[in-house]
Design a protein around this nucleic acid. Structure first.
Lengths: 196, 196
DNA sequence: GGACGCATGTAATAGGTTACATGATTAC
DNA sequence: GTAATCATGTAACCTATTACATGCGTCC
């Protein structure tokens, strides 16, 4: 049996994440790292050490093209933008058959062993996690208000980036709300203060 | 600067996952792989190729101990059980300070690029995902009924494994419900059938 | 005879994090 | 001076998946 040629993997999710960001605006590796931290950090994340090599691979495959921009006051940078081929690849990936990789949630795993742990310490942990998720929820709600005020028209049109941003925000809102409520319920149970 | 000694890492999450399972009942590597597929597969997962070496490491550290059990009809197996030290390590890990590793959700990432994709194909994808999550939700609800019927007494006591199982089930129910609803809402929006 | 379940392992590869490395400019 | 931000890269390591490898017993 001849080996299937290696190094030909057509799409890593990280690569698609970078294309996703570049589809909206041309960005440098540094910019991309920032956005993968705060902007879309809720559902995808990567370090700069992973980003720079991946950008080179995407460029080799003709999905993006980079220009070096010289700046007088700061170090020069490479700004990448999507090529037509890149946009096509991205569009196809979005609706391609989906194998959900298994979820890993360490807090839920810990909950599964709650019975061996100290209940009051466990309650404190879940209170702390509830707070963390409530904070994020509050941030998302603030963003939601902005969006609903400023992007009314675009939210009806699935072909706008605003619609897509709003779509992910809806997920963030639901996710954090549910997570916070679960944490709170568990903390209550662990402290034996049954809710009404 | 002298290097910090290597190979001393005290706890991998996978290791804790295995201890979590062994805290409930002694199991073989094969059994563990099965449970990490269906039983606790919702929030943690591992392949057998990762499990066997990890078991050896845990045994070296004295957290578990294994006995070879000879079977006449089947291949012999190694049954591992938690040691006292293992149980202590597990209990401490459960409530130890928590750094939530960043969430990665490929479907949400795809949603962020919905605007470049074909809407009707996208709607089909989200319908399919909705179905997948609804199926899981139905399974969890069936399990919930069993639990509430059979484990009434234990559910008030956080020191029982039944309580801990129920705690994770609550998370599963909330997670799948929210996910399914999000998928449905997006599919509706993409098909321009606004909900009441 | 062949597929499937039980049972345990190793090897190769891919994906991701942490650490190493460099260097300019600006703000304190 | 020193920390922080901008800016790009490589190396080492850890984690996880896929593939390779073996072998017995049962069911069809």
């Amino acid at each position: 049996m001849t080996r299937i040629a290696r190094g030909q993997k057509t799409s890593s999710t990280l690569g698609m994440a970078l294309l996703s960001l570049l589809a909206r605006e041309p960005l440098s590796g540094y910019d991309l790292a920032q956005r993968l931290d705060d902007n879309v950090g809720f559902f995808w994340h990567a370090q700069h050490s992973q980003i720079y090599p991946e950008l080179q691979r995407l460029a080799t495959r003709g999905l993006i093209s980079g220009k070096t921009v010289k700046q007088s006051d700061r170090p020069h940078k490479k700004i990448y933008s999507l090529t037509e081929r890149g946009k096509k690849t991205l569009a196809e990936w979005v609706t391609s058959p989906f194998d959900a990789p298994p979820l890993r949630d360490e807090l839920t795993l810990r909950a599964w062993s709650l019975w061996v742990a100290d209940s009051s310490r466990a309650a404190a942990l879940f209170r702390a996690e509830e707070t963390r998720h409530r904070k994020r929820l509050a941030e998302y709600r603030a963003f939601e208000k902005q969006i609903e005020a400023g992007w009314q028209a675009q939210l009806d049109d699935p072909s706008t980036p605003e619609f897509a941003t709003w779509a992910t925000l809806l997920r963030g809102l639901g996710y954090e709300k549910e997570y916070a409520e679960w944490c709170r319920r568990l903390a209550d149970l662990l402290e034996r203060r049954p809710r009404s």
